[in-house]
Amino acid sequence: MQLLIADLHLHPAQPDIARAFVDYLRGPARDASSLTILGDLFEAWIGDDYQGEFERTIIAELRACHEAGTRLAFMHGNRDFLIGEGFAADSGCALLEDPTVVELGGERVLLMHGDSLCTRDEAYMAFRQQARNPAWQAQILAMPVEERLALAKKLRQQSGEANSNKAEDIMDVTPSEVVKTMEAAGVQTLIHGHTHRPAVHDLEVAGAPAKRYVLGDWRPDQGWQLRVEGDTFALESFSL
């Protein structure tokens, strides 16, 4: 069994979700051969050099799950794009490029966080290009911790304000971009998160039937996962 999750947005202000994730790592994740996290594990990450008690607890639980035999993989999201090799070494998570093609259920499957598919949100796409620039990241990481904490808080506030004024369809994926991306990768199955709109979409790619699985975000009362057993893909919600 292989599991995929995304968009937990872990933060000290949401201890219920953090506790549920710890239980998940100690339970279902240890029954799986692998657990892949497709971005936004944390609500914010200002650099591997800053780890408070909250971050250290999550890292320790990931490491314990890894040492119990579950292969862990992590892909950057739009909130935790500053996670680096230090986090990977401490947690036992392998870092995945976005996008990445893997073999799941006996087929080639494209994994993404999903934000790069939201091309109608031009303002966000401009920010994404900046935020994924290594030079910009190096500049941010060179700032004192206090300044990075303040910047992260400011960016979260700005994001919330901006999203409240955007049309719903702008913040969802662009259908033509989905097809183009899947065709370029040579796959008929795509799995991503980011939009917080869990669903299984049927579509056509390169003249053949295809599927797009969208992982849901975790909330105080509900979590989401994609479970792959054999050639069966099951998008599931569960109570926290």
Rank of each mutant, 00 (worst) to 15 (best):
I37Y: 02
I37H: 08
I37S: 05
I37V: 14
D40W: 01
L41V: 12
F42A: 05
E43K: 07
A44M: 08
A44C: 05
W45M: 10
G47Q: 03
G47H: 06
D48S: 06
D49P: 01
Y50C: 12
Q51F: 03
Q51V: 09
E53Q: 13
E53D: 15
E55T: 11
R56S: 15
R56M: 15
T57N: 07
I58W: 01
I58H: 03
E61V: 02
E61F: 01
L62E: 10
R63L: 13
A64K: 08
C65E: 13
H66P: 00
E67Y: 00
A68H: 15
A68P: 03
G69N: 12
G69M: 06
L72E: 12
A73E: 14
A73S: 15
F74D: 06
M75E: 11
H76V: 01
H76A: 14
G77N: 11
N78V: 12
R79C: 11
R79Q: 09
R79P: 11
D80H: 04
L82G: 02
G84S: 14
G84P: 02
A88I: 05
A89L: 12
S91R: 02
C93D: 14
C93Y: 06
A94R: 08
L96I: 07
E97T: 12
E97D: 15
T100Q: 10
T100K: 01
T100I: 02
V102N: 04
E103I: 04
G105Y: 09
G106T: 11
G106C: 04
G106A: 13
G106F: 04
E107Y: 01
R108Y: 03
L110K: 01
L110I: 07
M112N: 05
G114Y: 03
G114L: 03
G114W: 05
D115M: 04
D115K: 02
S116W: 04
S116N: 12
T119M: 08
D121I: 01
D121L: 09
E122P: 00
E122V: 14
E122C: 01
A123T: 13
M125G: 05
A126S: 14
A126P: 00
A126F: 05
F127S: 08
R128T: 05
Q129A: 14
Q130F: 10
